[in-house]
Amino acid sequence: MLNNDFFINTVRFIALVLLQILLLNNINFMGYINPYAYITFILVFPLNANKSLLIFLAFLLGLTIDMFMDSGGVHAAACSFIAYIRPWILKFSFGVSYEHNTIRIGKTSMAQRFSYVGIMVLLHHFILFSLEIFSLQHILLIVKSTLFSGIFTILLVLGLIILFSRKK
């Protein structure tokens, strides 16, 4: 069982990184809007798994993306942040019942899932663009990028979650 989880998550990690760098980074919708759907890895990581492990893997995921995008450590920072606050967001969106391992993200109601994905994606993007642009003068650009890319990412992530959960 443990080996199975390990295998699935390794494949997911590599597949999402490749999807991000080879396909999604080249979309450039309206010049600058790209979805960052690789964070699906953090969102669907087993809910009862070790939290420290998730934070570390999220950091590694972000750093891999940073390496491909030459963006310093902005993705790593944003990823480790949402991995760290994930338990609180889960509690907020799904109620305390998630702690009893009864929840499968693929089987929750649409509204709950949307609030979970939406909050996580917007937080991730806001940190990402704040660090990347790194200047208060461009606060409008930060908010604009967060919103536009965020909407794009949320739609894509919801689609990916349906895709991932159908297998079981």
């Binding site: 934070i55 570390f56 950091f59 972000g62 750093l63 940073d66 963006s71 310093g72 450590g73 902005v74 790593a76 920072a77 480790s80 942040f81 660090l131 790194f134």
Partner: peptide, 11 residues
């Protein structure tokens, strides 16, 4: 990890 990422970013 966050501090390491910030370090990379600033660098």
């Amino acid at each position: 990890l966050f501090v390491i990422s910030l370090f990379f970013t600033i660098q």
